[in-house]
Computed example of a mutant assay.
Amino acid sequence: MIVLRNVSKVFNASSGPVTAVEDVSFQVEQGQIYGIIGYSGAGKSTLIRLLNGLEKPTSGSVTIAGQCITDATGEQLRRARLKISMVFQHFNLLWSRTVSENIAFPLQIAGASKAVIKQRVQELIGLVGLTGKEDTYPAQLSGGQKQRVGIARALANNPDVLLCDEATSALDPQTTDSILDLLLSINRQLQLTIVLITHEMHVVRKICHRVAVMEAGRIVEEGEVLSVFTHPQQPITRQFVKQTTEYSSANTPFNPQLVDAQGGCVLKLTFIGVSTQQPIVGELTLKYALPFNILHGKMTQTTHGTFGELWLQVAASDSQLERILADLHRYDITTEVVTHV
């Protein structure tokens, strides 16, 4: 559906050339929700403008639904853009138009008949959960409702691809979840390909199938969300994962003074899929006749399955610890020795 090959974008500034995107390659399959995550200045905004044809790459190619938009110009580019819609962070609604009129706007530009527009607007209002708000103006809507209007408007011309540029960044956590649930529902109902630009790992975890991590214009890590969450390879990826695991050396999920007083070692176990249902702690306790103190636990759901994290404290000798780690490896559980006294 979407293929980027060795895409770079260099801007000519007064101080000299500035590389915003450098040698980026990835592929998004039809019906996938693909997340692109990075901090400010990583190149995400430039990348999304390359995807919708608002910017031309300095080198490389961008192909969407078999159409190379890198080479498209004039009418050919306009037709290609009709199949690529955008949802924005700050809604970009027409404040003098009602909900229905905002959703109808792209249909009017495309030259659709009044009958077609009326029917399509009603379909979309129902799809995004705004029934009863047809004649309401944007100023009378909550942030989440405004974004629902933006999503409905983006879907008006039946696009092949929906680009979401920080679509939940201006919303509170509860509203963010409701919008993400809506996007996931739309993806499943319409088999719509969605590309999400974000700096929030929670967004990626909740609905994305694959994720690319950007830093300084490059993609430094890419893969299925569950794999990236459980085995992050790059330091920046580990920083993002900590947003949802709530663990860092400066903010432990348990009382470090209690751990220091009891001694031993602290193990961080990461479970994937069926291993989350196995009685691992009980079996280890029986086998080694050691008390395993559960310090903290967390289960996380992604679109590709569940993974769990568990912090255990155990006063084991070096030889026992070696055997415990080997047993956990046989259970296909990733284990990290957080502290070892």
Rank of each mutant, 00 (worst) to 15 (best):
V21L: 05
Y288E: 03
V225T: 07
P253R: 08
Q27L: 09
L310G: 03
P253L: 03
N158F: 02
P279A: 06
P256E: 15
E224Y: 05
G66F: 02
Y34A: 07
V18S: 08
K56H: 01
L4R: 11
D71N: 03
P291C: 09
R79H: 13
N187Y: 02
V116W: 01
P173K: 01
Q320S: 05
G264F: 15
T245F: 13
L182D: 02
P291S: 14
D23K: 04
V266C: 07
I64H: 11
G305Y: 13
G35L: 06
L295T: 12
Q239W: 04
V204L: 08
V203Q: 06
I179S: 07
Q89W: 07
D160K: 00
L82E: 09
E75D: 08
R238G: 05
R49V: 02
G264Q: 14
Q76F: 04
Y39N: 04
L141W: 01
W311A: 12
F26G: 12
R153K: 11
N12T: 14
D181T: 13
V195Q: 00
T98H: 03
H296P: 12
S275C: 05
M201D: 07
R323L: 14
W95A: 13
C265E: 13
R148G: 01
H340E: 14
V18Y: 03
A80C: 02
A289F: 00
S249P: 06
A115R: 11
A315Q: 15
V203R: 03
N158Q: 08
R323H: 12
V18P: 15
S45T: 15
T176W: 10
S185E: 13
H329T: 13
R153G: 12
V149Q: 09
N157T: 11
